[in-house]
C-alpha cells in the first residue's frame, strides 16, 4: 500500500530536464505527476471558494442565494414580461439549461484567469500547469451544485400541483409534464460529459489568456452570443430555420439536448445523439489540454 507522498517521492527520485522541441510532454509521467499534486489543486479551489464571500454579509449562503435570484429574474422575464404564454415545463427547461450553461461559462472565465492570475505560483513552483484550469472547473462545479436545489424544489412544487394555475393560464400543456423518473439518474453521466467539455474549454482559455490578455474582455460577449445561439432560452422545435442550421456546429447543442431530455422530458435520447455529445466533449478536452501542455513551458516567462 503506497501513499500519495511515497509515489510522488519515487516519481521525483530522478528527474531529467531536457529541451522539448516536440511540444507535448510525455503524457504518462505528466498525468502521474498531476495525480500526485491533486490535493494541491483541490486546496487551491477550496481556498477560492472560502475567500470568495469571506467579506460579505450572507457569506457562503450566497451560493444558494445566487441561483435563487437568477431563477426569479428569469421567471420575471419568461412569465411576466413575455405575457404568460410559456408554461412551467418551459421554465424548467430554461432553468436546467441555464444552470448548466452558467457552469460552462464560469469554467471558461475562471479557467482563463487561472494561469495568469497564478503568476507567482507559476514563476516559483514546478507542477503540471493543467492543474490550474482544472482547479477552476472544480470551483465552478461547487458553485453549480447548490443550483440543483432550486431545480429539485421547482420539480417538487410542479409535481404537487402548485403550478397548475400557471399551466392553465399558459394554455396548451407540454407533451410530458414534469415528473420524477429513474431516467433522471442519467443526468449524472451527462454532467460528467459536460464537465469534460468544461475542462477542455478552461484549459484552452487559460492558454489563450497568456498570449492575449484581451481575452477576458471579449469573453462575456462571446459567452452571451453563444447562449443566444444555444437551445437554452428557446426550444429546438420553436426555433427559426436559420438558427436550426447553425446548431450542428454548436459544440454544446448535443450535450444540452441529452441534458434536457433526461432531466426535463424524462426520455432517453438515441445512441447517435449520445455519441455526438460524447465526441464533442472528449474532443474539447483533448484539444484544450493538449494545447495547454504544448505551451505550458513558456508560461513561466510569459505571465
Amino acid at each position: 500500500m503506497s501513499t500519495p507522498s511515497d509515489s510522488r517521492t519515487r516519481a521525483r527520485a530522478m528527474q531529467t530536464f531536457e529541451p522539448h522541441r516536440a511540444g507535448i510532454p510525455p503524457l504518462l509521467p505528466y498525468v502521474r505527476e498531476m495525480w500526485g499534486r491533486r490535493h494541491f489543486a483541490a486546496e487551491l479551489s477550496r481556498a477560492t471558494m472560502r475567500a470568495a464571500h469571506s467579506r460579505t454579509f450572507f457569506g457562503q449562503f450566497w451560493l444558494v442565494l445566487n441561483p435563487t435570484l437568477s431563477a426569479l429574474v428569469y421567471y420575471l422575464l419568461v412569465v411576466i414580461i413575455a405575457g404568460g404564454s410559456k408554461g412551467p415545463e418551459f421554465f424548467a427547461h430554461l432553468l436546467v439549461g441555464l444552470f448548466a450553461f452558467n457552469f460552462i461559462s464560469a469554467s471558461m472565465s475562471m479557467g482563463a484567469a487561472s494561469v495568469v492570475g497564478g503568476g507567482r505560483l507559476v514563476m516559483n513552483t514546478a507542477f503540471p500547469r493543467l492543474l490550474l484550469p482544472l482547479s477552476a472547473v472544480r470551483t465552478a462545479f461547487l458553485r453549480f451544485l447548490p443550483s440543483l436545489i432550486i431545480v429539485v424544489v421547482f420539480f417538487l412544487l410542479r409535481v404537487n400541483g402548485v403550478f397548475d394555475g400557471w399551466q392553465a393560464a399558459a394554455g396548451k400543456g407540454a407533451a410530458t409534464p414534469l415528473h420524477f423518473s429513474p431516467v433522471q439518474l442519467l443526468a449524472i453521466p451527462v454532467f460528467g460529459l459536460i464537465m469534460l467539455f468544461a475542462c477542455g474549454l478552461a484549459a484552452f482559455m487559460a492558454t489563450l489568456q497568456v498570449y492575449f490578455r484581451d481575452m477576458t474582455s471579449f469573453l462575456p460577449f462571446f459567452t452571451r452570443i453563444w447562449l443566444y445561439l444555444s437551445p437554452v432560452l428557446w426550444e429546438v422545435e420553436t426555433a427559426h430555420e436559420k438558427v436550426k442550421q447553425l446548431l450542428a456546429f454548436n459544440p454544446i447543442f448535443r450535450l444540452f439536448e441529452v441534458w434536457g431530455d433526461v432531466i426535463v422530458r424524462g426520455t432517453v435520447p438515441d445512441t447517435g445523439v449520445w455519441l455526438a455529445a460524447a465526441a464533442w466533449s472528449i474532443g474539447a478536452l483533448l484539444v484544450g489540454s493538449l494545447f495547454l501542455m504544448s505551451r505550458e513551458r513558456e508560461f513561466a516567462v510569459r505571465v
Partner: peptide, 25 residues
C-alpha cells in the same frame, strides 16, 4: 524544472524544494 533548458541537460536526484520567493500560493 520551472523553465525548460533550450540546450543541454539537467539531472536532479532527489526531492527538490524551492525557496525562490516568500508566500507563494
Amino acid at each position: 524544472g520551472i523553465l525548460p533548458p533550450n540546450e543541454g541537460r539537467i539531472s536532479v536526484s532527489g526531492r527538490v524544494s524551492t525557496l525562490l520567493a516568500l508566500g507563494v500560493g
